[in-house]
Design a protein around this nucleic acid. Structure first.
Lengths: 211, 211
DNA sequence: CGAATAGTTGACCGATGTCAATGAAGGTGG
DNA sequence: CCACCTTCATTGACATCGGTCAACTATTCG
C-alpha cells in the first residue's frame, strides 16, 4: 500500500534487545505502516517479534473510542493471548519487519511463555497505575521515561507513533498531549527537534512528576 | 487484633469456585480485616487461594495515593509476581481464610502458573480499558457488572470493600463513587438495601453504559 | 506548488476533584 | 440495653483539570 522507502526504516530500530525467541530463524514478514497484523477475534496461537518498526496493540469500543494497551519496539514480542482468540488488534505504526513463531509448531518455546506472560502482566500493571492515579502531565512524563528506557536510556527519544496514538495509550486527547509537550518544552524539560523526536533535557524533573 | 465473630463470615463466601489448586489440602490461615498478607518488596514465591473473605492488592505512591489493582473473592487466587519479589501489597478487607501454596515445594503446580498468569493478564487488560477510556459512571457500571459476575451472576451484590477501596480501584474519589451510586439509585438501576449490598434492578442499563 | 494530514493553540464548558457540613452505622463502655 | 463516639458514607458548593470545538500552523506527499 505504502511505498517502502529507506527513510522509514529508522536506524535505531535495529538495536538488539533481549532475543527471547532465537530458536531458529523464521522468515521476516513485512507490514506497511497502518496495516493490520492481526484483528480482534481472529484465531491466536503465534508469538510475534518485532525486527524493525513499531506496532500498536489496541481495542475499539462500540462508539469508536480506542484504547491502545501497548506499543512494541524492535526486539520486543507480542501476540500472546488469554485464550485461543485475539482480544486485541495489532497494527504496524511504521513499516515493520516481524518474525512469527507458531506455538503449535514450536513446542520448545512453551517454557518461554510464562516469562512472556509475566512480562506482559508487569507492564499492564504499571500502565494501570499510571492510568488510575496519575494526572495528565504525570502520564506523559511516565510515557517519556518508559520510551526512553526501552530505547536504551537515550536522551533522544524517537516517537514512532502519532499524538493520537499517545493519547489513546494514556487515556488523553491529542490536544492535551500536545499542550503538555508544549508546557514541558517551555519549562526546559524537553526539546522537540521535530514532531517525532523528543530530547530529554531534565530527567530529574520528569522523574519527580511520578511518585 | 479484631475479634473473630461468626457474623463476619458471610454465608455466600463459602460458595465454591473453580478450584484451581486442589493438589493437596493446605492449612487454612486466618487474617483479620485490615491485616497485611504480604507487603511490597517481600520475597514472593507462593500462590494464595481465598477460602472465605475478600482481599485487596494495591500499591502506594510516594504522596499517599493508592491504586488497588485487584480484589479477590473466595475461590480466586493471587500472589503471582513478575519476579521473585512482591510488587504489591495484599491485605484482608474482611476477615479471611486463605490457603498458601509454595511454588518451590509444589512443582506439580508449575503447569497452572501460565494459566494463572494469563488470567491475571486478561483481568489487568480489561481493567486498563475501563480506566483509560471510560467515564466515571461507566467505570462504576463495569465494576458492578464485574462483581455480579464473580459472585455468580446474582442480583444481590455484596460489597466487601469500602467506598474508598472502590474509588482506589476505579481511579475515582469516594465522593464520586457515592454520587454515582446515588444517581443509579435515583434512576432505578440499582437499589441500596444497605451500605455493603447492592441490588441490580436493570441489567440492560448497566450493560449499555459500556460499549 | 498545492492539497491533505497532523499538530498546535485558544476559548469555553463540563465532569470530576476538593473542601466542608451533615447523616448513618457500628463498636465500646457504662 | 442504651448512649456515645468513631468511622464511613452522603450531599452540597466551589474549583480545577482536561475535553470539546474551532481556528490556525506545520509537515508531508503527490
Amino acid at each position: 500500500m505504502i511505498a517502502y522507502t529507506a527513510s522509514k526504516i529508522a536506524t535505531r530500530e535495529f538495536t538488539a534487545k533481549a532475543p527471547l525467541l532465537p530458536t531458529r530463524p523464521q522468515p521476516l514478514h513485512f507490514f506497511a505502516a497502518g496495516t493490520e497484523i492481526y484483528g480482534q477475534n481472529e484465531l491466536a496461537g503465534c508469538i510475534y517479534q518485532v525486527e524493525f518498526g513499531a506496532i500498536r496493540i489496541y481495542r475499539l469500543l462500540a462508539d469508536g473510542r480506542r484504547q491502545i494497551s501497548s506499543f512494541h519496539l524492535p526486539g520486543e514480542t507480542f501476540g500472546l493471548e488469554v485464550d485461543d482468540r485475539h482480544h486485541f488488534c495489532a497494527e504496524a505504526i511504521s513499516n515493520c519487519g516481524i518474525r512469527k513463531f507458531s506455538l503449535a509448531s514450536h513446542p520448545e518455546m512453551s517454557g518461554e511463555l510464562l516469562s512472556l506472560a509475566l512480562q506482559s502482566l508487569g507492564r499492564a500493571q504499571d500502565h494501570l497505575l499510571v492510568l488510575a492515579r496519575q494526572a495528565a502531565c504525570e502520564r506523559v512524563g511516565a510515557f517519556l521515561l518508559e520510551l526512553a528506557e526501552r530505547q536504551g536510556g537515550t536522551n533522544m527519544i524517537e516517537l514512532p507513533m502519532s499524538r493520537m496514538d499517545i493519547g489513546d495509550y494514556l487515556g488523553l486527547t491529542i490536544e492535551t498531549v500536545s499542550r503538555i509537550f508544549s508546557k514541558l518544552k517551555e519549562q526546559g524539560i524537553i526539546r522537540l527537534p521535530s514532531l517525532r523526536c523528543i530530547e530529554i533535557m531534565n530527567w530529574d524533573a520528569l522523574h519527580s512528576m511520578n511518585a
